[in-house]
């Protein structure tokens, strides 16, 4: 209960090797500012959950690793002394207690008086808009209601940091989207430091102040959602977040030459063959006459809010282009494309 919103968290050289020899996490150092929401994003087995569990105190880092909450070294503290809130994919609500008792559990353990406890539970129920569920048994709740109760239970004790491990993965798509927004609003209104684990890049983009992309036990890039999306540091990040076109062209005379035309690229140094990347929505469809690039529609997918085209002839391989235009395209139709040089990306690896 002595927790306050906005605890800064610092990991120093935290690695994790399991007794069977599996190295789940390489030496990782990370700073989370107070009140910041950071998302650990990556494929399964990338170490994101292990990292979360090291922060929680459910796993202790290998020799040499340290975990700090503000200036306090909590490395040797077990989870029950760290005052962290946890939300699990499986909700992990106590089936032998009703909704109200679940939310009150942490307060009870901390020795909060019954009347004060009840007031706090009321407040939590109102905040999560589930006041009518107070007396319900857990088995009578839907998945979305369960996750709201789990959030309320974690927040009720005013933890120093909130840790969410794939909290929306078990829910259906529509509910996931709605709860994602609610969680984002909630985290920012509380001003609490939060770490959120997910494999879903859409969730990461929507919730994270910062995203730490992870692969094979290491953080490969940390940055704002925009930085991660438009300035991926490696081809792994580029490919993991959204769709990325990867084409090979030749830089000659201040322009990048592709099979379907050329892109003026005056400020680019060097010359010769090179690989460049661009996002599907960075290629604009233009009048074919006088277009810098030309291609042929191979396939089209109407996605409701946008249309996705597979276009051949532009580059050495099929490129994906997205447009919000309402017009319909025909397979086999010739189209013109324009890609601003600023949208082109060169990667070192």
């Amino acid at each position: 209960m002595n927790g306050k919103a906005g605890t800064a968290i610092r990991l120093v050289d935290c690695a994790k090797t399991f007794p069977n020899g599996t190295r789940a996490l390489d030496k990782t150092s990370l700073e989370m500012r107070g009140g910041e929401t950071i998302v650990f994003l990556g494929p399964s087995g990338c170490g994101k959950t292990t990292l979360l569990r090291v922060i929680a105190g459910l796993e202790s880092p290998d020799e040499g690793g340290r975990v700090y909450f503000d200036d306090e070294d909590v490395t040797s503290q077990p989870i029950e002394h760290r005052n962290v809130g946890m939300v699990f994919q499986s909700y992990a609500l106590f089936p032998n207690m009703n909704v109200g008792d679940n939310i009150a559990y942490g307060l009870k353990v901390h020795g909060v008086a019954p009347d004060k406890r009840a007031r706090r539970v009321d407040e939590m129920l109102r905040m999560m808009q589930i006041s009518e569920l107070r007396e319900r048994r857990i088995t009578e709740l839907s998945g979305g209601q369960r996750q709201r109760v789990a959030l309320a239970r974690a927040i009720a004790v005013q933890p120093r940091v909130l840790l969410l491990d794939e909290p929306l993965t078990a829910l259906d798509a529509l509910l996931r989207e709605r709860l994602r927004i609610e969680i984002d609003v909630l985290l920012h209104s509380l001003g609490i430091t939060a770490a959120y684990v997910t494999h879903d890049q859409g969730e990461a983009m929507a919730i994270g102040d910062r995203i730490a992309v992870m692969n094979k036990g290491a953080i490969v890039q940390t940055g704002s959602p925009r930085e991660i999306y438009y300035k991926p540091a490696s081809s792994f990040v580029a490919d993991f977040i959204g769709t990325m076109n990867r084409v090979t062209g030749t830089l000659r005379g201040g322009a990048l030459e592709l099979p379907g035309g050329r892109i003026d690229w005056a400020d680019q140094q060097g010359s010769g063959e090179m690989q460049v990347l661009f996002r599907p929505n960075d290629a604009r469809i233009v009048e074919e006459a006088g277009a810098p690039l030309r291609g042929v529609v191979e396939q089209q997918f109407f996605l409701g809010d946008r249309t996705r085209l597979h276009v051949t002839g532009v580059a050495d391989r099929t490129v994906v282009v997205e447009t919000t235009e309402h017009r319909e395209f025909r397979v086999g139709q010739s189209i013109g494309l324009r890609i601003e040089p600023g949208a082109l990306l060169r990667l070192r690896d």
Partner: peptide, 13 residues
Amino acid sequence: DPALEEAARSLGA
């Protein structure tokens, strides 16, 4: 579910 015990511990149990 091991998460149940972890949840209880995170709440200070």
